[in-house]
């Protein structure tokens, strides 16, 4: 209709639109090419700085797993016994992950309520709490764990504390985002009848956001199990440490390493699957 009154109006809009989309598509293509070039250059650089080159090592990549597998198969009768032997270490690793996830979640709940712009008891507290969470999140667990091992001696507690600290920051940020999307009406309703801050949070916010919190906490548990195994590898006990020792024994004794691999992979897959099922139920059950 309008192109009847403005001659050439529609075609001008069409030309403008096509030019714009062409420009955007050209930009995406250029960006993609730049990204690919950076990747190629990056891999070249990483390859040149590596102790062994990619092409030299490629044919050797199967050697270690095959060796492990053949030794495990040759002494398959010993594997169940070895798995039973290493079960306590696995339980220690899982305990580190689970307890740090629980304590970390509890801390993250408090931090996230203080760090959510719409819920904090005072406005000035939001920024410092957020910076503290950033700091906790940015610290690599391995650094905290090694420093704590030096000060606290060995054992699983340094690893547990290191993972807990990281969980404060990682979950705190995610929880704070959930909190900021919470419906303000129940909070206002409680405020109007004179409820205190803790009461408002407990009765108006927690019931709304708890399923989301729990789902993020489960996801964090999956991550923490892996982190706990890695920290064991650098000296914090648990299955990671046993794995390091077993691999150090070298050829001919790989059946122990194979048993640990099986334990580790099975427990990670099991935890991933059950956490995923629980998370699906939490999210769907709410809708």
């Amino acid at each position: 209709m309008s192109d009847a009154t403005v001659p050439g109006g529609l075609s001008r809009i069409e030309a403008g639109y096509l030019a714009q989309s062409r420009r955007r598509r050209a930009l995406s293509t250029v960006l993609g090419i730049v990204l690919l070039a950076m990747l190629a250059a990056g891999f070249g650089l990483a390859d040149s700085r590596n102790a062994g080159g990619f092409l030299d090592g490629l044919h050797r990549i199967g050697d270690f797993p095959l060796e492990l597998l053949s030794e495990a198969l040759a002494r398959a009768d010993r594997i169940p016994g070895l798995m039973a032997h290493y079960l306590p270490s696995l339980i220690e690793t899982l305990n580190i992950a689970l307890s740090s996830t629980i304590i970390g979640t509890a801390g993250a709940v408090v931090l996230s309520l203080l760090g959510a712009r719409n819920l904090a008891p005072a406005r000035w507290i939001v920024a410092p709490v957020r910076r503290v969470m950033d700091l906790f999140r940015a610290l690599p667990e391995i650094v905290v764990a090694l420093a704590l091992i030096f000060a606290l001696g060995g054992g699983p507690v340094p690893a547990m504390l290191a993972i807990t600290l990281h969980t404060f920051g990682a979950l705190g940020k995610l929880f704070a985002e959930v909190n900021e999307n919470a419906d303000p009406r129940p909070v206002e309703g409680l405020a109007s009848v004179g409820a205190g801050w803790v009461q408002r949070m407990w009765f108006a916010v927690v019931p709304q956001v708890a399923p989301n919190w729990l789902s993020y906490a489960l996801l964090r548990l999956e991550i923490n199990v892996r982190a706990s195994a890695i920290l064991g590898f650098v000296g914090a006990g648990g299955i990671g440490y046993d794995l390091k020792v077993a691999i150090g024994w070298g050829q001919g004794r790989y059946d122990a390493a194979a048993a640990i691999f099986v334990l580790l992979i099975l427990s990670i897959i099991l935890i991933d699957q059950s956490s995923e099922r629980l998370r699906n139920r939490l999210i769907r059950g709410k809708a």
Binding site: D47, R49, A51, G52, G57, R60
Partner: peptide, 11 residues
């Protein structure tokens, strides 16, 4: 597994 094949390094 990868360290066994390629040695230490960024790659």
């Amino acid at each position: 597994i990868l360290s066994r094949a390629f040695g230490p390094g960024p790659l």
